[in-house]
Write a protein that binds this DNA or RNA. Structure first.
Length: 591
DNA sequence: CTAGGGTTAG
């Protein structure tokens, strides 16, 4: 007996059902098929069916496989498919499409394509269902170029006419890679080809636009869907839009949309509520998040692990680790199993609150429970070790990550570079950077921001300058942070002229300075006792609605106290005190 | 009532 067979027997267990089914008639089987909710039923039924002579029709087998596939037991379904082959059940295009779908969902798209051979041997022409399963597999495996090639080939060689589902799959793939433009073009192509876009088409693109913070475009498409196409939004459409609004901090609009949704008699579901919980937690408003969870329970929705993970994150963010731990420990009582994300969230909290030992304890505990730390977990721990200056431990974990088959990603790379820079190992970071050469990893503006910042902090302005020029030469676009760290670099060295020149270039380049840029430049001016433009910069900050941070403010006060700056500046500074500092007693006796 | 599509972690 092979391994899968013994696994199946373990899963089966319920011999009474088996016995019952063995003595039941065909019609009982039929009615039971639609009630299959667990593997036992399906497996027992398959067993019974395969012992019948003559064998039941392929249709019945297909129905059974469909049930197993619907509850996402893809490998079991594939195993049953193989059993069907051995039994000599005459496979049809339904059976093969189910098998291909299972392969693809198991990240074995290669095997899915191999199954096409099954079609050819049986003179079955692969149809749009089969090709869509394969396309979906390629998208799932992030093989977007191959997905596009397949899609184009199907059309060009007229292998099948894409229908709305296949367009949706291709659009999902494009959106996954941030290619909203092509996704939209495909939507237009559908219309041209008289294949009407559905709620799924619109929701996919709307969600992608929201994720890219293109909320106006998202609403434009939303209105087109509703008012031009007459397609009514559903809970998924609303949830995407609400998340988009929350992520941008547009709370009023988010709550307006929530109300609109309820007016349309569409109830928020677990995921809608979770979006709200997550948004509140990210704002540090854990009490509001808890209130949402209570509302959701009152309304009969059951918060899931994702909901609680957001809450754990929220408490961690506020440094309330005892409370975070309490929620984590309560998961089991709620019948939820802590997953990799739950562990990662909590150990991230411990890291951020500088309790690296507790974090490491969680890290080991999760492995003990059979949960494999993923790239995110490793990244979090590595960052944690760097944060407390334990570079050797960070390195050890980096090696362990490799050994465990977790491939470092763009984030890992950034964390390592930043960790080295912050631990006085800028040279080390630079040599790693040069070692990576012209790889994709080094084509990320974030990498340059880290290195320029690192170089600047350790007074290596020449290196910073070379890096800045290097990214321009590569065709990368500096962002606000790039300009800001470069300006900071110049300021550290007292090169105020260069700092000012770059500052002026920002508006020209369509990348206006933010509050941080102003603070950096002002600090540079003050520390170098260069006061000419200070009033002008402060006024500009007032005009742009920016505020000063505590450290810049106190620098100003020091300069005024020793008479380097005139007291008349206090009035202007008063307009730049952030709300949260207004209550600070050390700042209340101004003027 | 035999096959395929959209929302949830650092």
């Amino acid at each position: 007996m092979n391994q899968t067979n013994s696994l199946l027997i373990k899963l089966r267990g319920n011999f009474i059902t088996t016995a019952f089914l063995l003595h039941s008639n065909f019609s009982t089987n039929r009615s039971m098929l639609h009630k299959i909710t667990n593997l036992n039923h399906a497996l027992n039924l398959f067993d019974e069916m395969s012992q019948r002579r003559p064998l039941p029709s392929v249709v019945l087998f297909n129905q059974l496989l469909t049930s197993v596939t619907k509850i996402k037991h893809f490998s079991i379904s594939l195993h049953l498919f193989n059993q069907m082959c051995s039994l000599g059940v005459p496979l049809d295009k339904y059976s093969i499409s189910i098998a291909i779908k299972c392969c693809c969902q198991l990240y074995r798209t290669k095997d899915g394509f191999a199954l096409l051979g099954c079609c050819f041997r049986r003179a079955i022409a692969p149809n749009v269902f089969i090709f869509n399963a394969l396309l979906d597999g390629l998208v799932l495996e992030d093989r977007i170029l191959e997905a596009e090639m397949l899609f184009k080939k199907l059309i060009k060689q007229k292998l099948c006419e894409p229908d709305v589902v296949m367009y949706n799959t291709m659009i999902k793939g494009l959106c996954k890679f941030g290619n909203n433009v092509t996704a939209l073009a495909l939507l237009r192509l559908m219309e041209q080809k008289n294949c009407q876009p559905s709620i799924v088409t619109y929701s996919t693109i709307i969600d992608s636009l929201c994720k890219d913070k293109l909320i106006d475009d998202a609403f434009k498409l939303f209105k087109e869907m509703v008012f031009e196409k007459g397609i009514l939004p559903n809970v998924i459409t609303y949830t995407s839009l609400i998340r988009g609004l929350c992520n941008l901090g547009h709370w009023d609009e988010a709550s307006k949309l929530l109300k609109e949704m309820e007016d349309e008699k569409i109830s928020p579901d677990v995921q809608t509520f979770t979006v709200l919980v997550d948004a509140f937690c990210k704002e540090g408003k854990v009490e509001e998040a808890e209130a949402i969870i209570n509302i959701m329970i009152e309304r009969g929705e059951v918060p899931d692990i994702v909901t609680y993970n957001s809450l754990i994150d929220g408490y961690c963010l506020r440094g309330e680790m005892i409370k975070a731990r309490e929620i984590f420990d309560s998961l089991t009582l709620r019948g939820l199993v802590p997953d990799v994300v739950a562990y990662s969230s909590l150990l991230n909290g411990y890291c951020k609150n500088l309790n690296i030992e507790k974090a490491m304890q969680m890290f080991r505990e999760m492995s003990g429970k059979g949960l494999k730390p993923n790239v995110v977990t490793y990244n979090t721990m590595i960052q944690g070790f760097f944060h407390v200056g334990r570079c050797v431990d960070a390195r050890k974990l980096f090696d362990e990550m490799h050994a465990q088959g977790q491939i470092p990603d763009q984030c890992t790379y950034g964390i390592v570079l930043e960790g080295l820079c912050n631990n006085r190992q800028v040279e080390e970071a630079l040599s790693l950077f040069h070692l990576m050469g012209d790889s994709k990893l080094n084509s990320d503006i974030v990498v340059y921001n880290i290195l320029i910042d690192g170089a600047g902090k350790y007074r290596k302005v020449d290196i910073a300058r070379v890096l800045f020029q290097g990214l321009i030469d590569k065709g990368l676009l500096p962002n606000v942070r790039t300009y800001t760290v470069m300006i900071n670099s110049f300021c550290q060295e007292g090169l105020l002229g260069e700092a000012q020149l770059l500052f002026l270039k920002m508006d020209e380049s369509g990348c206006p300075p933010n509050d941080v840029t102003y603070r950096v430049l002002l600090q540079g001016y003050l520390k170098n006792q260069h006061y000419d433009d200070v009033v002008m910069l402060l006024q500009e900050m007032v005009d742009r609605g920016y505020s000063l941070d505590a450290s810049t403010l106190s620098l100003f006060i020091d300069h005024i106290a020793v008479g380097l700056l005139d007291r008349s500046m206090l009035k202007l500074l008063g307009k730049l005190v952030p709300k949260e500092l207004m209550d600070d007693p050390s700042l209340c006796d101004w003027e």
